[in-house]
């Protein structure tokens, strides 16, 4: 049972590291937007695209569509 004197401090150390990491992640802004990230993993990153040129397609078309 004397191993407790070693194991408990080690556990505390891990806990401290965990807290430190979590606080870093919060300060880093990784938790600033809980909704979006939760939703994001369900969404396709690359939606089905007809072709890649289309996004660069004529700016005049874009302008026509403006309300």
């Amino acid at each position: 049972m004397d191993s407790l004197y070693l194991l408990i401090p080690i556990a505390l150390l891990f806990c401290a590291i965990g807290i430190k990491l979590l606080l870093w992640a919060i300060d880093n802004g990784q938790y600033d937007d809980l909704d979006k990230e939760a939703w994001k993993i369900l969404a396709d990153d690359e939606p089905a695209l007809p072709s890649t040129e289309q996004d660069g397609s004529p700016p005049d078309q874009q302008r026509r569509e403006q309300p």
């Binding site: 939703w39 369900l42 969404a43 396709d44 939606p47 089905a48 695209l49 007809p50 289309q54 996004d55 078309q61 874009q62 569509e65 403006q66 309300p67």
Partner: peptide, 22 residues
């Protein structure tokens, strides 16, 4: 209205219709 139509057309033209499901 024409405003909504223009936006919807733009979304559709970009292949992002999925938006409406999500």
């Amino acid at each position: 209205c024409p405003g909504c139509r223009a936006v919807a057309q733009l979304i559709s033209a970009n292949g992002l219709e999925n938006f409406y499901q999500q």
